[in-house]
């Protein structure tokens, strides 16, 4: 008797679960710039605890994601490492929203070489006594643009140019320093926030690295936005809890971040 009751109870909960996932819970794909990988994983696991929706994230360079979106990739949200790519998608009419800033990245000068342990890395940079200086490729990565800005403001561009090695993205730049092939390198503060030795570059030396996101439009969506999961996730990102998570990974946030949605369907 007891067994039967517990079995029917299980059946009931399974039915409930199925009903929830079929009628309420949605599963959506989002695309995220690689520098935000760890943060996004933490955000998604927090979000999914209190939501019927599932978020499936793909991580990659913003340029590649942009090209994929333009060719019909099934992403609902795009978290870029910069502002230009979300803006381009917006201008091309491929989005439901204007771009909004979800995080502001910081720059740090980092070394993994024991030789520089405890030393002031700013003076190491000024002294020129290092083998290579790793930076993200400024043509591709906003963290690279910021690094060049810092060098300009410190009048070190010409003095250090011969020692530059460029990572294709900030993850590869980190790798060059991590494997000690480059003595020092400008990496994202979020990558080394738990490391002991770094110089956090003062924010007056470069323009803030604004990372923007957009809600993407799909041809199948005839009547405006019908994606509750994406909207819920955006709302979650504006909560104090997720802002605290983002900050714990070394980013700054703007607490008045909001999103303007184009509910009408102008382009169809």
């Amino acid at each position: 008797m007891h067994l039967v009751r517990s079995f029917s109870f299980h059946l009931y909960s399974i039915t409930l679960l199925l009903w929830c996932t079929s009628s309420q819970g949605e599963s959506i794909h989002i695309a995220v710039a690689s520098n935000f990988t760890h943060t996004m994983k933490a955000l998604i696991s927090e979000f999914e605890q209190n939501s019927p929706h599932k978020i499936k994230a793909s991580y990659g360079s913003s340029g590649k994601i942009y090209a994929q979106i333009k060719h019909g990739a099934p992403f609902k949200l795009f978290f870029s490492a910069d502002q230009s790519k979300p803006l381009a998608l917006y201008n091309e009419g491929l989005t439901h929203s204007k771009p909004f800033t979800y995080a502001l990245g910081g720059l740090a000068l980092w070394s993994n070489n024991k030789h520089f342990n405890g030393e002031n890395l700013e003076s190491v940079l000024l002294s020129g006594e290092f083998n290579k200086l790793a930076i993200a490729n400024p043509k591709l990565a906003p963290y690279g643009i910021a690094a060049i800005e810092v060098l300009k403001n410190m009048n070190l561009v010409e003095a250090t140019r011969k020692k530059w090695v460029r990572g294709e993205n900030i993850a590869q730049t980190y790798q060059f320093v991590r494997t000690e092939n480059a003595d020092i390198g400008f990496v994202a503060f979020s990558q080394i926030v738990r490391q002991p030795f770094y110089w956090k570059v003062p924010s007056n030396l470069y323009q803030p690295i604004r990372q923007d996101a957009v809600l993407l439009k799909h041809k199948s969506e005839k009547n405006g936005i019908n994606n509750k999961a994406a909207l819920d996730f955006i709302q979650f990102l504006n909560s104090l809890k997720s802002q605290a998570i983002i900050q714990s990974y070394g980013y700054r946030t703007e607490n008045n971040a909001y999103i303007e949605l184009e509910m009408s369907n102008k382009n169809t």
């Binding site: 360079s61 340029g63 590649k64 090209a67 790519k85 043509k139 591709l140 294709e168």
Partner: peptide, 8 residues
């Protein structure tokens, strides 16, 4: 080529 594609 990769650089060109990545920077659109």
């Amino acid at each position: 080529v990769y650089d060109h594609v990545e920077s659109l």
